[in-house]
Design a protein around this nucleic acid. Structure first.
Lengths: 258, 258
DNA sequence: TATTATATCTCGGGT
DNA sequence: ACCCGAGGTATAATA
């Protein structure tokens, strides 16, 4: 399953590492190294103790002893090469599109973990933007009385508006949803759709930004650009979803039961 | 430096893990587990073989055997708790701001790596947006003859324009830089600054988007919104920087030498 | 393949 | 503490 090799000689190390890569095993190398990167940008990392993860699909992640983010990485490798040179073990990881190369120079390897992991587990994420969008689509009254949705992910210009519908006066409504906090960036996104829609159809639609909260400059921009916003409560949305899943009886009955 | 423990009993495992966390060591646990997460969103992961990294500052990263991205994580933990319950080893990682919890339930632990890594290395990144901005600031002729820059990261409204200056006619120029490809999003960003500047000063500035290349819809939007764009060559910028670093003689001399 | 928008984005810098 | 914007962002979805 998982084997640990405490590296004695470099030769032995290289052998273990090469075998693990050839067999597409998970491989983690602990040691002292420097790292170079060149591709979309370029970086240098001077010597220190780190660990390099090479996954079963060739993804490479280099971690320092602290912090969430890897210091260097290579998501899609086309070639992983391991050689000994100048008394260092050099790992070269090449990616083709875009063309990028990561070099790890180990002056010392403390140990190597390798083995095949089997993971057929299912990952499910709740309350991401898609789910919020779907709940709102099913329950337009959460936004405004008389609102009817006509389309999810409506293609407008080259982009996609989260929701599209008409209000009680049959005025088109374009809706942009943010799951956490809506900043000015979200306002600009919405404004873009509104403008393009107006240009293409000659009809000026309403643009409503929906989020659990808004930055002050977002609200400022909303006013300046003639848009609207509405705060939503994620927990309420969640209740609506659960009520719908329960499927027995109406929403009213559901909440009375609780 | 690094020690590997092949776990026999659960009790022994828990002891090793607790010690490593208490001593703020790097800790990697290999085994079969399920993972739950609740916080900004929520997720469930059914059983499979994974490894959990707990770093020396408490950052937690849970990786499946393939792919660059972790399946679950916790960047800033305030509490990490390890207990045995129902014959499972449960790791609970709590973050306070925002309030989020990750639970890992190990039904089996294959082995544990732990130890203190020392990493004082320096990481330097080249040709990120800051560097490009600085080179352009020093060399406005790369964009246009007669252009003079007055400010970097100029605060406009609630945001920041990359560069601000005046052209040969003393017309204000706002510049937005993208390091790789400029999409419509970048155009909107620039448009936002231009609009706000115009609103605040009554003077209509030029807005120039600068990037090594542009998506077709970006260029379309640029024309529609009355903005401008200019393609730059990163390698040329790099040469300018190197020339400046060389410091002996003029740019002309530098290029003649090559 | 290129483009678009999301992300439990993370992270750093500024106010 | 909030807000803003970059990132070698990666990743998924869509034309």
């Amino acid at each position: 399953m998982i084997e640990y090799t405490k590296c004695g000689s470099n030769d032995q190390c290289v052998e273990v590492i090469k075998n693990a890569i050839r067999n597409k095993e998970l491989l983690i190398i602990f040691g002292k190294c420097t790292v170079d990167y060149q591709g979309r940008a370029a970086s240098k990392l001077t010597e220190g103790e780190r660990f390099v993860i090479i996954k079963q699909d060739g993804a490479i992640i280099i971690h320092r002893p602290t912090g969430y983010s890897p210091v260097n990485w290579q998501p899609n490798t086309s070639v992983i090469e391991v050689v000994e040179r100048d008394n260092k073990i050099v790992i070269t990881a090449i990616r083709n599109k875009p063309r990028e190369i990561v070099w790890v120079y180990f002056s010392e390897i403390y140990g190597v973990i390798h083995g095949k992991l089997v993971d057929l587990g299912e990952f499910v994420m709740y309350m991401d933007e898609n789910e919020i969008r779907d709940i709102l689509y099913e329950n337009p009254e959460l936004i405004e009385k008389g609102l009817r949705f006509l389309e999810k992910e409506k293609s407008i210009g080259n982009g996609y508006a989260d929701l599209f519908g008409v209000d009680k006066n049959n005025t088109p409504v374009i809706i942009e949803i943010k799951r956490i906090s809506a900043s000015r960036e979200a306002v600009l996104q919405l404004f873009n759709y509104v403008k393009i829609y107006e240009n293409m159809t000659g009809v000026k639609p309403r643009g409503i930004l929906i989020a659990p909260n808004f930055t002050s400059s977002a609200i400022e921009s909303i006013h300046k650009l003639g848009l609207e916003y509405k705060e939503i409560n994620l927990q309420l949305l969640w209740k609506y979803k659960k009520a719908k899943e329960a499927k027995h009886g109406t929403l009213l009955e559901f909440f009375q039961k609780k």
